[in-house]
Design a protein around this nucleic acid. Structure first.
Length: 440
RNA sequence: UCCGGAGUAGCUCAACGGUAGAGCGGGUGACUGUUAAUCACUAGGUUGGGAGUUCAAAUCUCUCCUCCGGAGCCA
């Protein structure tokens, strides 16, 4: 067993994140100069390797002369390869440092656009390709990675099959939203706003499926909650009703939160996230009907009529009543999509659910039990001004073995913003696309 | 699309009718334990574009452009 451990470590590649296991050893680091502090006979290089930042100490006694003299050439973000001994050192940020023996300057960086002082967001977004190197952005993107992994693991471990859905689509999923139009060999095609209708075909073939990919909305939204290109995961489950759907949504979101807490505490601390708010989240999540939600608003003195849709401020008031995400179900059918099943007990209500994140982060999930009655579905398609022809393959799913089924979509970036405690959604994705940004 | 705010040095900002300034970053030099290192010296500007008012405009007026925040729409 001791031998196995030794072998395992010998085979382990050194990177800054696991310095603890290499104390006393001489290792080689390849990375970039995050910062340099120069003295006369000693200088400090903060080296970034993608996993963390290591303080490298260069002195005339421990390093050769050529390596020491690199201090006159090196600039912020220059690429360097350093060899030296890893030591525990309380004076060093991170608790470890490297005593440098030799150094190789791979490339001298030009004057770096992102200085050590503060910058405006728009300037940083113009330099997004470089901004990603900073501690804060590094932490966010790593948390995003953990969220995406949790999403895939959750479904993969529960017998869901991945069914990818097309990005080019012939028609809108939900008539109202504005879509990006493209020329598809002389024919109109739209960038997808949802994979759901295809997901329903998948559920009929595989039982439980999910699709996960980018989604596009051409609305000219200018808010901190909107991107024109964002990632959405959409599970669809055969023989699941609305309550079972909410069970999955709750368990799924709880799993994502717990994975982030388990694996990304250092990153959350870098972001100065109030972790107690995330630790307070518990199952079961509160479930309230739309009608109850309207009562909450009215009790708080908000003028709100049954039948209207919630605005951002309304959602914040409702969600702030709870520590955990809240699921609001049975919305007025008039404000929901045609494919949602009507409540058998009240035709004015749709079997829809939205999940609102705490702390004012808004809607992170939208879903429903789907309409499985072909007559009802055809009726609503016609009410929307479309034809049976437009939805012929979708209606086939009701002609050939219709079945109760449900699903939902979760917006990845809104979850990242919520868990990271960010002010703006544009930091949640490496290269955001908004109404005013297509570059970089 | 509507409402509000802002464009001044590479960056973050000040000057708000009378000769355009600071901090950071850059350059040069000093320093053996720095922590957004410090200290000294130094370079750097058609004040977003256009038009107008005035003896005089970064400053006042109009217009256009760009960006930010909010509303609507939504994940």
């Amino acid at each position: 067993m001791v031998v196995m451990e030794k072998q395992g470590k010998d085979m382990q590649e050194y990177f800054i994140q696991n310095s603890k296991e290499f104390v006393g050893e001489t290792v080689t680091l390849k990375g970039w100069a995050y910062n340099v502090r120069k003295g006369g006979k000693i200088w400090f290089l903060l080296l970034r390797d993608g996993t963390g930042i290591m303080q490298c100490v260069v002195t005339k006694f421990d390093a050769d002369e050529a390596s020491f003299d690199i201090k006159t050439l090196i600039t912020q973000e220059s690429s360097v390869i350093v060899t030296g001994e890893v030591k525990e050192e309380p004076r060093s940020p991170g608790g470890y440092e490297m005593l440098v023996h030799s150094m190789d300057l791979v490339s001298v960086a030009d004057e770096y656009p992102i200085s050590k002082k503060e910058h405006g967001t728009d300037y940083l977004m113009d330099n997004r390709h470089l901004w990603l190197r900073s501690k804060r952005q590094h932490a966010i993107i790593r948390i995003r990675h953990t969220i995406v992994k949790a999403i895939r693991d959750y479904f993969d471990d529960r017998n869901f099959t991945l069914v990818d859905t097309p990005i080019f689509q012939k028609a809108a999923t939900e008539g109202t939203a504005t879509l990006f139009e493209t020329d598809y060999f002389g024919e109109k095609a739209f960038l997808t706003q949802s994979g759901q209708l295809y997901g329903e075909a998948g559920a009929a073939a595989f039982g439980k499926i999910y699709c996960f990919g980018p989604t596009f909305r051409a609305e000219k939204s200018k808010t901190r909650r909107h991107l024109t290109e964002f990632w959405m995961v959409e599970p669809e489950m055969a023989y699941y009703d609305l309550d079972m759907n909410m069970d999955v949504a709750e368990d799924f979101v709880f799993y994502i939160v717990s994975q982030v807490l388990e694996h990304r505490k250092p990153e959350l601390e870098t972001l100065e996230r109030d972790i107690s708010k995330l630790e307070a989240i518990q199952k079961p999540f509160p479930r309230i009907s739309y009608t109850d939600a309207v009562k909450i608003l009215n009790d708080k003195g908000v003028e709100f009529k049954w039948g209207d849709d919630f605005g951002g401020g309304d959602e914040t008031i409702i969600s702030s009543q709870f520590d955990s995400p809240v699921m609001v179900h049975r919305y007025p059918s008039a404000i929901k999509a045609f494919y949602m099943k009507r409540d058998p007990e009240n035709d004015k209500q749709a079997m829809a659910l939205d999940m609102l994140a705490p702390e004012g982060y808004g809607e992170i999930i939208g879903g429903s039990q789907r309409e499985d009655d072909i007559e009802a579905l055809v009726g609503r398609i016609k009410e929307d001004g479309a034809t049976e022809e437009d939805y012929s393959w979708y209606l086939d799913l009701r002609r050939y073995g219709s079945f109760p089924h449900s699903g939902f979509g979760l917006g990845v970036e809104r979850v990242v913003a919520w868990l990271c405690g960010l002010q703006h959604i544009r930091e949640t994705i490496p290269f955001p696309r908004t109404i005013s940004r297509l570059n970089p």
